[in-house]
Simulated assay, not measured.
Amino acid sequence: MFPRTRTIIPARDGTLRVLRAAREAGVKRVVVTSSLGAIGYGHPSRDRPFDETDWTNLDGADVQPYIKSKTLAERAAWDFIARAGSGLELSVVNPAGIFGPVLGPDFSSSIEIVKSLLDGAMPAVPRVYFGVVDVRDVADLHLRAMMAPEAKGERFIAVSGETMSILDIARVLRRELGPRARRVPRLQAPDWLVRLAANRIPLLRAVVPMLGRVRHSTSAKARSLLGWRARSNDEAILATAESLIRLGLVKG
């Protein structure tokens, strides 16, 4: 199945179905969960942080099918609202990588990073960076976006602090978990080695365009307009690890 059929079309069409149903039911406001992937990809490296005025450039080399699906789905949502003329309001939350406590074995790819580190699945980590946010803070921002009059027609980035590398996350785990992090790698793999390994390991191919790309982003709008406050990166990472260990989801 092609990425367009598997990822892009369901994301866009599913978003539009929800908006149509909301309009027909007389719903006042819909909050769409988009992604920072709809904001900060496909651009040259830059020092200025990405904010809600930015959009991902779909022609960029680092735009994978998931990123494209989130961008096109959010674009379709805003276009729908612009055409609907029915009084239906839209707010959008754009989270960075979502971490925090898990409830069971069905979890996201962000959580899988922490699990892989704790399991020692990677002898060395690729030079990949991303923003971090705790799932509990993402939920809080959704509520604020739903209830606050100021949130009508606005996007809100959900990110806790500075961009982290996978090696940064590994260091947090080793520092805070002690012996429980004994399998966590200490080394960062050189980019050339990751590119070479990607020829044999399909899962690494999606990582290659991300090597060394640092995307700074800011949640200043959510903080100033909605009074949103987020847990620190370290707290989100540690909560992820503690829950995985407590639920027996990592190697003993």
Rank of each mutant, 00 (worst) to 15 (best):
I157D: 06
I157F: 04
I157W: 02
V159Y: 03
V159F: 02
S160Q: 04
G161Y: 04
E162D: 13
E162R: 15
T163I: 10
T163S: 08
M164D: 02
M164C: 11
S165W: 02
L167E: 01
D168K: 04
A170N: 02
V172I: 15
V172D: 01
V172A: 01
L173E: 06
L173Q: 07
L173T: 08
R174D: 08
R175N: 10
E176H: 11
L177C: 03
G178Y: 04
R180W: 03
R180Q: 14
A181K: 04
A181D: 00
A181L: 04
R182H: 09
R183Q: 01
R183M: 07
V184F: 05
P185D: 03
P185H: 02
L187F: 14
A189D: 03
P190A: 10
D191N: 15
W192Q: 07
R195S: 14
R195C: 08
R195W: 05
L196W: 14
A197P: 00
A198Q: 11
A198K: 08
A198Y: 07
A198G: 11
A198I: 12
N199D: 04
N199A: 12
R200C: 13
I201P: 07
L204N: 10
A206N: 14
A206C: 03
V207G: 07
V207Y: 08
M210Q: 15
M210T: 14
L211F: 12
L211P: 12
L211M: 11
R213V: 15
V214P: 04
V214R: 13
R215T: 09
R215N: 12
R215V: 08
R215D: 02
S217Y: 04
S217N: 04
S217I: 04
T218W: 10
S219E: 05
S219W: 06
A220C: 01
A220P: 00
K221I: 11
K221C: 09
K221A: 07
A222R: 10
A222Q: 10
R223P: 00
R223V: 14
R223W: 02
S224I: 03
L225I: 15
L225R: 14
